[in-house]
């Protein structure tokens, strides 16, 4: 179900495809290696350290701070209808970084590197197909989470 991830998706099949299912349930997942305990975000099926191919998802809080950002005016195919949009790199509290869109609880004009933020799982409202993504919002923002992880 990795095809669910992104407004425009380029990768349909991956060994970590349940990431998108968890995201739909409101959970942001990294991975932990079953061999050596190496933890990383974004998740990887195969450990870069010990070369084990056995892993488990582990939930991330989504708390972090702004590492860098840019407001994009010149958008590529599939994103022109939402331009200009702000892309933010977040340094996650549990380690690792992600890139996501600035949510509407924050203002691009006052955003600063080092600001505390909350990464929030989202479902794209327009259209029939399921599309999931996440936004970078004001610290303390809450969202709906499915009661327990269920994988499709």
């Amino acid at each position: 179900m990795f095809s669910w991830f992104g407004k425009v998706n380029f990768v349909q099949y991956t060994k970590v495809s349940d990431f998108a299912v968890h995201l739909k349930d409101g959970r942001l997942m990294g991975s932990v290696c079953s061999g050596c305990g190496f933890q990383t975000f974004p998740p990887r099926a195969d450990c870069p350290e010990c070369m084990s191919d056995d892993f488990e998802f582990t939930e991330y809080s989504g708390k972090g701070e702004v590492y860098t950002y840019t407001k994009t005016d010149a958008a590529p195919t599939g994103f022109d209808d939402i331009a200009p949009y702000t892309v933010v790199v977040v340094e996650l509290e549990e380690g690792g970084r992600l890139v996501g869109w600035l949510g509407d609880t924050l203002d691009a004009g006052t955003l600063a590197i080092g600001d505390a933020v909350q990464v929030v799982p989202r479902i794209w409202e327009e259209g029939e197909e399921i599309k999931v993504y996440f936004t970078v919002d004001r610290s303390g923002t809450t969202w709906h989470k499915a009661p327990a992880a269920h994988l499709g």
Binding site: F5, G6, K7, V8, N9, F10, V11, T14, P42, Y67, T68, Y69, T70, T72, A74, A75, P76, T77, G78, F79, I82, A83, Y85, V87, V89, L98, V99, G100, W101, I113, Y133
Partner: peptide, 28 residues
């Protein structure tokens, strides 16, 4: 093509671009 400059699994899905990446270096 411009939309597939970056890593496509985790990054390009957010409309990252070539100038956008270097712009993020610039801001940092």
């Amino acid at each position: 093509l411009m939309g597939r400059v970056g890593e496509v699994q985790w990054e390009s899905v957010f409309g990252t671009t070539f100038p956008g990446y270097y712009a993020m270096f610039a801001n940092r």
